[in-house]
Simulated scan of single mutants.
Amino acid sequence: MDDRDVASGMLGFHKSSACKKTTAYLECADPQIRRMIQQGAANCGEQAYEVWQYMNHRGYYQVPTMNEMTTNTVAHSYVTANTAQMGMLQPTPTNQRIADYRMMQ
């Protein structure tokens, strides 16, 4: 067992705990207990991020990257509510780029 194994375990536990606490506070009716659990979920998320930073710095957990075209397609695939009319999207350059990208697939 080495540092990578320990850090991976810590990261997994923090991520799992954040998810479980989020589910718990969404189901909680008491406002004080709800805030306490919500803060605990936020703390777990922050601790998971700190462990990830350590792992990334050591080369244990690298950030995957997308090519620029994929990144642009994802970033521009969402349209605001005012561009939709009666369930149909207005023709825009963004919609055309998405259609063009899908045709290339």
Rank of each mutant, 00 (worst) to 15 (best):
K21G: 00
A29V: 09
A84G: 03
A99G: 02
N95I: 11
T71V: 02
Q47H: 15
Q105L: 13
C44N: 09
N95L: 15
D30F: 07
V51F: 01
T65R: 10
N95D: 00
E27N: 12
Y61F: 07
T73L: 12
Q90C: 12
E46S: 11
D3T: 11
N72M: 09
A29H: 14
H57M: 13
K21I: 02
T71R: 14
D3C: 05
A99S: 14
Y49C: 04
A81M: 02
D100P: 03
T94N: 15
S77I: 05
R34E: 13
P31C: 10
M69N: 02
S17D: 01
A99L: 15
R58Y: 06
H57P: 00
G87F: 08
D5H: 09
N82W: 06
E46W: 10
R34D: 03
R34V: 02
E27K: 14
T73N: 04
C44A: 12
I33A: 14
A42C: 06
D3Y: 09
D2T: 13
M104K: 10
G40Q: 03
L11K: 01
T71K: 14
P91T: 09
N67D: 15
P64T: 02
A48D: 01
N43A: 14
G40P: 05
H57F: 12
A29I: 09
G45S: 10
M66G: 01
S16V: 00
A84W: 15
Q32T: 13
A29D: 15
T92V: 07
A75T: 06
M69T: 11
A7Q: 05
T65A: 13
T73G: 00
Y101G: 00
L26V: 03
T83K: 13
S16F: 02
Q90Y: 13
Y60P: 02
Q62S: 06
D5C: 04
S77Q: 02
D3I: 10
Q96H: 08
M103E: 13
V79K: 09
T80W: 05
T73I: 14
N67M: 00
A24W: 04
S16D: 06
P64H: 04
R58I: 01
C19A: 03
Y61S: 05
P64E: 01
P64A: 00
D100W: 07
M66K: 04
S8C: 07
E68T: 05
A42I: 13
G87R: 08
A75V: 08
L11N: 00
T94V: 03
G40I: 05
M86S: 12
M88K: 15
Q90R: 15
N56P: 01
H14S: 02
I98R: 01
T73C: 01
V6R: 14
Y78S: 11
W52M: 04
P91M: 08
M104T: 11
A18T: 00
V63R: 14
Y25H: 13
